[in-house]
Amino acid sequence: MSAVDSLPAAAGDRPRGPLALLRRLGPTGSHVAALALVLVVVVVVASLLSETFLTTDNLLNVTRQVAVLGILAGATTLLMVSGGIDLSIGACASLCGVIAAKLLNGDASATVAVLAVVGIGMGVGLLNGLAIVASGAPPLILTLGTMSILEGFSQATTNAETIPVGNFGWLGAATLLGIPMPAVVAGVVLLACGLLLRYTRLGRDALAIGGNEHASFVAGIGIGRVKIALYVIAGALAALAGLVLVSRVGAASPMGGVGLELQAVAAVVIGGASLAGGRGSVAGTVLGVVLLGVITNVLNLLNVQTYYQSVATGAVIAIAVMSGQAGTRWRSDRGAGH
């Protein structure tokens, strides 16, 4: 996927040299380019450290492992470019997975279960969006509250136990043309998010609101309905992520999605989005997700203890964000960004 939602390149008189290239790419584009370079280096180092890393099986495995995170990161990208955030999507994914499992075990057809669960996800998103728009409460804290509520519901529904699900493997365990189904779903979702941001009114309005909310209001954009629509989409994608997770694992855990929302935020910020909104791209998010996935995978292959994996992943997030910030400063010092 190319930088589908970065700014169009500037035409007119074009100076040459690396600075001019950065200027043409824009702040988002040059961040994505730098991140791609980092990813290449990490892949090279990984393949030197582990023989199994650069095998088809392992790489497909990586895509399967990052798929759920990828779906949630797509939702987070849409929200974050508009200046919003939703911390409840991880909990929403677990709740939806749990409910789907109950429905499937209670003789509901897969279609019914999927539709019901996606509807629930959209309902949760609608409530989040309405509450944020009506009250003006900061989304970070409001969705933190929703997260706790949804976690509570999941635990109550299952008595805090994992529910095994049979006969629901097509979404998570199957493959399409050799590619794991979760990866196919995540790819479609991320492509759709990219197209949405680039070509639809909703996507452009989201970027406009994140870039300058007051100017967007004065320009006549219906700020409230745009925000609500974005939270509804995020809820639907959270439900989808929950379904993929249940299908892949073959069981629904009430804590299955816990923490994924923060990993998604990390991936999106690594991908160059600004927490303040107005900046970010799905291309960057994809690279952020893959980078996190590759690092986890390599540490697994090298049999590093999970405790130290956590340390390493945390360090990667911190370093990536700091260097992204430094890059932004460097560009603006030289007048290449804005």
Partner: peptide, 14 residues
């Protein structure tokens, strides 16, 4: 609007 940076423009857009 009078204050074009605050109320008139989305700076990141073309």
């Amino acid at each position: 609007p009078e204050d074009r940076l605050r109320s008139g423009l989305v700076p990141a857009f073309d």
